[in-house]
């Protein structure tokens, strides 16, 4: 094993060639090697932990909602807020590349919401969420919905400090999304299969999608819902309530 970088012989390749261990032993007088051994996402993870501590101290149950664009995420969220706003304290952080259209839709429900525009970014990160908490000031003992940028790839790597990650998939998308974007499905806690009111008009196999999810994440819970008709939305609300209580034990 190399004393400087710790890699074993023959294990690592740089651009297909063996890593040259001599390069970092020959340091000149003013150059030196600093060992870092840190995950690239370390800084994000630190911010995520700060958020997590804040949520725990204030009994805020934070959810990271992820999906591809057009899965009906915002409609589902609006329906949820309308149905639960008289029962619980709720607030929303909206993430989109541009426009505050979604935050305006959410604010119409009467629930407080802030919009994060990521500009060129394709996901929310824990630092952005931390800053929007300062502005949003979510109430104690409440639910916070963080609607991530519509994208099944990048948001998978960025912990926001949430208690649970919920992936929303609609039946108008292909059944094979879970195996096409496995990282997102592997680490999520719940999948909401949305737009099931459209099933009679589609050639869609529920068996297949369950089979694919099972292959990637056998622990994942799946609820079939329709935000439009309200079908099975009560199951999702029960899950929210139970999960918040479990989180506080």
């Amino acid at each position: 094993m190399c004393a400087t970088c710790g890699c074993g012989e023959g294990e690592v390749k740089i651009d297909g060639e063996d890593h040259n261990h001599h390069s970092h032993t020959h340091t000149t007088s003013n150059k030196r090697i600093v060992q870092i051994e840190t995950d690239i996402l370390e800084k994000n993870n630190q911010y995520a932990n700060q958020n997590r501590v804040f949520f725990k101290e204030h009994k805020i149950f934070a959810l990271n909602l992820v999906s591809s664009p057009g899965s009906g995420k915002t409609s589902l969220l609006c329906k949820t807020l309308d149905d639960l706003k008289n029962k619980y304290k709720l607030s929303v952080i909206e993430g989109d590349q541009q426009t505050d259209n979604d935050a305006k839709r959410i604010q119409k429900t009467g629930c407080p919401a802030v919009q994060i525009n990521t500009g060129k970014g394709c996901h929310l990160d824990a630092h952005m969420v931390g800053h929007s908490l300062e502005r949003l000031k979510p109430e104690k003992d409440s639910y916070l919905f963080i609607e991530n940028v519509g994208n099944l790839v990048c948001p998978a790597s960025f912990d926001l400090g949430e208690a649970k990650r919920v992936v929303i998939l609609s039946v108008t998308e292909g059944e094979d999304k879970p195996i096409k974007y496995p990282d997102m499905f592997a680490d999520s806690d719940l999948m909401l299969l949305n737009k099931i009111d459209l099933l009679p008009h589609l050639d869609y196999s529920l068996d297949k999608v369950y089979q694919y999810v099972n292959k990637i994440n056998p622990k994942m819970k799946i609820i079939q819902v329709s935000a439009t008709t309200g079908e099975s939305m009560d199951l999702w609300y029960q899950w929210l309530e139970i999960s918040k209580k479990t989180e506080e034990i």
Partner: peptide
């Protein structure tokens, strides 16, 4: 892995 292993610094 997505790791920063080491840096050569001055």
């Amino acid at each position: 892995e997505m790791k920063i292993k080491e840096l050569e610094v001055e």
